[in-house]
Write a protein that binds this DNA or RNA. Sequence first.
DNA 1: TATGAATGAGCTTTCATTCAT
DNA 2: CATGAATGAAAGCTCATTCAT
Lengths: 203, 203, 203, 203
Amino acid sequence: MAAAGSRRVPRAERERQMLDAAVATFARRGYRAASMDGIAEAAGVSKPLVYLYLNSKDELFSACIRREAAALTAAVRDAVQDGATPEVQLRSGLLGFFEHTAAHPDGWTILYSQARTVGEPFAAEVAALRAEIVDFVAALIAAACGSQEVAGYAHALVGAAESLAGWAASSPSADRSPKDLAATLMTLAWSGLATAVPPAPAS
Amino acid sequence: MAAAGSRRVPRAERERQMLDAAVATFARRGYRAASMDGIAEAAGVSKPLVYLYLNSKDELFSACIRREAAALTAAVRDAVQDGATPEVQLRSGLLGFFEHTAAHPDGWTILYSQARTVGEPFAAEVAALRAEIVDFVAALIAAACGSQEVAGYAHALVGAAESLAGWAASSPSADRSPKDLAATLMTLAWSGLATAVPPAPAS
Amino acid sequence: MAAAGSRRVPRAERERQMLDAAVATFARRGYRAASMDGIAEAAGVSKPLVYLYLNSKDELFSACIRREAAALTAAVRDAVQDGATPEVQLRSGLLGFFEHTAAHPDGWTILYSQARTVGEPFAAEVAALRAEIVDFVAALIAAACGSQEVAGYAHALVGAAESLAGWAASSPSADRSPKDLAATLMTLAWSGLATAVPPAPAS
Amino acid sequence: MAAAGSRRVPRAERERQMLDAAVATFARRGYRAASMDGIAEAAGVSKPLVYLYLNSKDELFSACIRREAAALTAAVRDAVQDGATPEVQLRSGLLGFFEHTAAHPDGWTILYSQARTVGEPFAAEVAALRAEIVDFVAALIAAACGSQEVAGYAHALVGAAESLAGWAASSPSADRSPKDLAATLMTLAWSGLATAVPPAPAS
DNA sequence: TATGAATGAGCTTTCATTCAT
DNA sequence: CATGAATGAAAGCTCATTCAT
């Protein structure tokens, strides 16, 4: 598991190696059960070096969360087609989400499962990220349907997406490609919402 | 905090006290961060007694999971009206789910957040419970719509329900009563599914 | 070194054993260089037991200081003859001091050498003890001589006593008994060298 | 805090910077608590350079002790007026001692407090220095009084001087100038309290 | 002359777990 | 039925020290 650690690596790269190892370890064992010894070994360095660069277990975990959160939001943001209709934006955003979580399962595990259970500093960080996503989805729904009572639908949609991402990760198969997942969720949601929240007055 | 532990309590009662304390502690601190000292103190008994009755931290946590899982499934099962249409069954099942999770937030936290992150023996236990629920939902969808491609929809629905339960727990307000949550989800899902998966021709 | 630790000792006695071992270890190695492992071994118990009873290295050291300070002040207080003249009180107090420091060199080392160098919580504790003694001596001098400018003399006397105690401890010999030390210091202080050691005849 | 470390400083100058930083750090934190990192940073150089010049923490501390001890003995020696009477020599030596310790409190702390508590190599070094001073004082007393039983008085005098130096350092005020301290101690020692502070009524 | 990169060893502290009563 | 006394093992963190440049 330990990377064939070539000696004398510049700091930036070493830090990346350490974060990679930490994300993998935290994802597999959880925050508390993961040991700094284990992370250092997985990174192919000695423990003091991890402390020299990342300061503490808390800060290391926080750095992992921030990196993975930034990567996930960037992936979704990049996937969304800016000028498109809300429906297309939501579909492409979901596609980006499913593609990123499939490509980075450890990062997704940290954000979705681990960070929420550790306690305040981290749970709040991740809750804020999730709230941002929920708000984004809510805005898309509101734009499409002209209703204000969309918070519940947004929360439901986000939860459904999380569940599907976990499903695909737990037992990957051909018909659970990101594209399929996005299609399933769009079908379920968009047609449901169309009936549920009838378009504004004009109709 | 410690329950007014009167001496000489019969075993069944003591075990219930311990499980109550353990569920609360595990929910608030997580499996690893919860200490047997803390649980014993919260239960109002000495630590060796916890070991005498529950044998180990692992078994104690497992007992918590089994008790809370049984309570949750019983609540849902009792809520479902047996002879009704799939739609009514699903709606009443969701109502039971939301009512139980709102009434037992610690139990829900253990099942949904903590048990999944601890590692193998427990994650599998909870995954089995969840799979059962997903299958139940899938069966209802299939019964209603006559399609076989329902696994994705079932996973999405369950995830949406989990998300709504967490939403209600995190910031309770008037318009997030179990009944409202169930209505929101039924609206989103059932109308969506109606369009997505057209009813079998015969019906 | 480890006491032949009979198993299952009541808490009060174990705590005394631990404090004995800690005082000896702190005196010989200093606060920082002393390890909790070493102290536990010297006490004939395992390290967790030391933490269970004394909580932390800081609190352990603090408990040592308090015990030794109390013992020293009690020894001096008991030695002083209450109704006597200031001179007799000072002489008997010094005798008590020299006897106690000679009988408990480790305690004296902790108070005089170690506690002052560790840093604020402890240095202040010991400084307060010393100030008390200085004030007591100052009061005796003032009572005997009717002067107010006695603080300097009191500090000098206390420092002289500390030095003599260290001298006796570092190289004990027959003519450095507590009684001799007290006599030397009383002579110096009460009569001055000029009187005590009459100048050589020729001069 | 870090000296404005201009590059390419000659070795002697750099070593002085390092010793200055080390003396200050050792005085404030103690030998064990002071870290080589902290000393290097305080000196404005990198840690390897400290090792290149001073070899190890032990040697660095030893160099500090030797420098400060040499400075103190030089200050006292220079203050003593060579041809004068023992009494004048002692008074001027004390004046030099109090002036030097007041001017170099960190150096004094290292010699008086820290070096004695660290353990053998250093304690012995400082003990030798102190023995030298005690012998010098003893010789003066013997020369003045013609007695051989002066070791106790010399130890008492040195301890009194140390105490007064610490008193002046801990709470400096107008009437604790080096000159005042020397006067107080000379009065006490040379005439004794009885003579120095004549009883109130009779006078 | 001077430093960024790196580590072996040791420290304090905590925890699950077990006897003896 | 119930507990005070006790510990092996491991975790987070720090430090003196070195090497390659």
